[in-house]
């Protein structure tokens, strides 16, 4: 436990927070990289996922891209990009890697969210004469919102983690505090840097969870309002909750004679 006290001492030392290698500067780099890359990835993946989900195409792509993203080690991609000619372009290899690894969770979750909107509700909206755009904006996106936000959260956590790894091939960010500590066998610094990174990741996740609550277009009208459960989860409580249009038919229709 002594190491953790030493790490606390490291964090409490003012000189560790200032200067080019200081926490403040590294945190700034980390936040900048995270914001830019998450933004860029959202700009690319959200429209693509929404469109694919809306027209119902590219399901295999959307699912496989997340499997591929999981199998490819981020560390390897960072090093490969750094050794390539792109490596001479400053932060560019880091930014490319960060955007690349943020895409799969965004694309997959958006697509799955769009496809899992209740088809009956979509049919009904179409029957009411909604155009494709109205359908997308008023029905599909609000219903898919929790999964879309899950994608954004996964992507954000992914970006924070990858930005940490970018320190290994010499990129900026809080990871540099950890790698610098490894370089000088300064375990308290390693632990302090790791604690900062972990705190940042949890903070980003927490902020996005709160944002999801406030931005949810169906706020207060969704069952539970929490995280989406795995699809086979089914209703755990026996009472048929009528306030949930997206689950309504699953519970009621099978109980009626279907013939």
């Amino acid at each position: 436990m002594g190491f953790f006290l030493d790490a606390w001492t490291w964090l409490a030392t003012g000189s560790n927070w200032t200067g080019g290698d200081g926490v403040v500067h590294r945190l700034g780099e980390h936040l900048y990289l995270t914001a830019v890359c998450l933004g860029a990835a959202c700009l690319i993946a959200l429209p693509a996922g929404l469109w694919l989900g809306h027209v119902g195409r590219g399901g295999a792509l959307a699912v496989n891209i997340s499997n591929a993203g999981r199998a490819v080690p981020t560390f390897a991609v960072l090093v490969l990009l750094t050794l390539s000619p792109l490596g001479k372009q400053g932060d560019l290899p880091t930014i490319i890697a960060l955007v690349l690894f943020a895409l799969p969770p965004l694309l997959t979750n958006t697509y799955v969210g769009m496809r899992e909107t209740d088809r009956d509700v979509v049919e009904a909206a179409r029957g009411m004469g909604m155009s494709g755009r109205q359908l997308l904006a008023r029905v599909e996106v609000p219903l898919a919102f929790p999964l879309i936000m899950t994608g954004v959260r996964s992507a954000a956590v992914q970006v924070v983690a990858t930005a940490t790894l970018a320190a290994l091939p010499g990129g900026g960010g809080l990871g540099r505090i950890i790698t610098a500590g490894f370089g000088t066998y300064d375990t308290p610094q390693v632990v302090a840097g790791a604690a900062l990174v972990a705190a940042l990741a949890l903070l980003v996740e927490g902020v996005l969870v709160v944002a999801e609550r406030f931005l949810d277009p169906m706020r207060g009208r969704r069952r539970g309002g929490g995280k989406p459960q795995p699809s086979t989860d089914g209703p755990r409580s026996g009472s048929p909750s009528r306030s949930t249009p997206d689950k309504f038919d699953e519970k009621v229709i099978p109980a009626q004679p279907t013939a």
Binding site: G56, R57, G59, A62, V63, S66, G69, R70, V72, T74, F75, F101, P104, P105, T108, N109, Y111, V112, R115, E116, R119, E123, L147, T150, G151, R153, S154, Q158, A161, T162, T164, L165, P228, Q229, P230, S231, T232, D249, E250, I253, P254, Q256, T258
Partner: peptide, 30 residues
Amino acid sequence: GRGPGEDGGAGGPEPGGPVDTVPAAAGKEA
């Protein structure tokens, strides 16, 4: 609850029944 022909085309990302029960988000890459 639905007739066989009503499912409007590409029936979503669930090939072969309830195999992939994980939310698509569950994956750690870095």
